[in-house]
Simulated scan of single mutants.
Amino acid sequence: MKHEIVINLPIAADEVPNLRELVGWDGRYSDYPTLFERCNFWAGLRDEENKLIAFGYVSGMGLQHGYMEDIIVHPEFQQKGIGESLVRKLLQEAERVGLEIVTLTYDSKHTSFYKKSGFTPCSGGLWRRKD
């Protein structure tokens, strides 16, 4: 399968939540399609049957800094280089639109993946609302 990652790929409102659930995440159905209206850009990949198999996006003010989130690859298509291609495409688009810094947070088990994809690990912080 050739990795034809497409920036701002047309995506139906339920496709990303369905993909999120396939990888064991909360679907966040209420976030879509609002996310597409608010983020800077997104990227996706479809398989031969036109099913969404990869997704990620960059959000922020669109000035100097962006934040990458939701790098998702369908479980059946993982370990094939799709995730790395997705991240690289998003970083190419970030560079094209003039972003100088892109950050993201990830579980430490994914450090080597993100290093391979061009990120430099660094310290940071996380605030989370208390439920």
Rank of each mutant, 00 (worst) to 15 (best):
T34R: 03
E21V: 15
L35F: 04
I72F: 02
V73C: 09
I5F: 09
Y67K: 12
H3D: 08
E76W: 01
V23Q: 00
E37F: 01
N18L: 14
E76I: 02
A43P: 10
N8K: 13
E69N: 14
L9H: 13
I7Y: 08
E76N: 12
D47S: 09
Y32P: 00
I82T: 02
M61V: 07
L22N: 03
G66M: 10
D14A: 11
R38T: 04
N18Q: 14
W25T: 03
P75L: 09
L22E: 08
K51C: 05
L45V: 04
F77A: 08
Y67W: 12
C39N: 14
R88D: 02
D26L: 09
Y67Q: 14
Q79N: 11
S85R: 05
V16I: 15
D14S: 13
L90S: 13
A12W: 04
L45P: 01
G66H: 07
P33V: 00
D14P: 02
Q79M: 05
L52F: 00
I53T: 08
L52T: 01
G60M: 12
V6Y: 03
N40H: 10
G60Q: 10
K51M: 06
I5M: 12
G62F: 05
G27L: 12
A12F: 11
A54H: 01
R20P: 09
Q64T: 05
H65Y: 01
Y57E: 01
F77S: 04
D31C: 08
Q78Y: 03
N18S: 14
F41P: 07
G83H: 08
K89H: 04
G62D: 00
I53R: 10
G81F: 04
I7L: 15
G56A: 15
W25P: 04
I7M: 15
P33C: 06
G62C: 09
V6D: 01
R46M: 12
V58F: 10
H65G: 00
V23L: 07
I71R: 00
G60Y: 07
D47G: 10
A13W: 07
D31H: 10
P17V: 04
E48R: 12
I71P: 01
V6A: 14
P17Q: 05
V6H: 09
E15R: 06
Q79D: 05
S59M: 14
C39Q: 11
E15K: 08
H3Q: 13
L86T: 06
V58Y: 07
L9E: 13
Y29I: 04
L90Q: 10
F41R: 09
M1L: 15
V23K: 02
G62L: 08
A13I: 01
A12G: 12
L19K: 12
E21C: 15
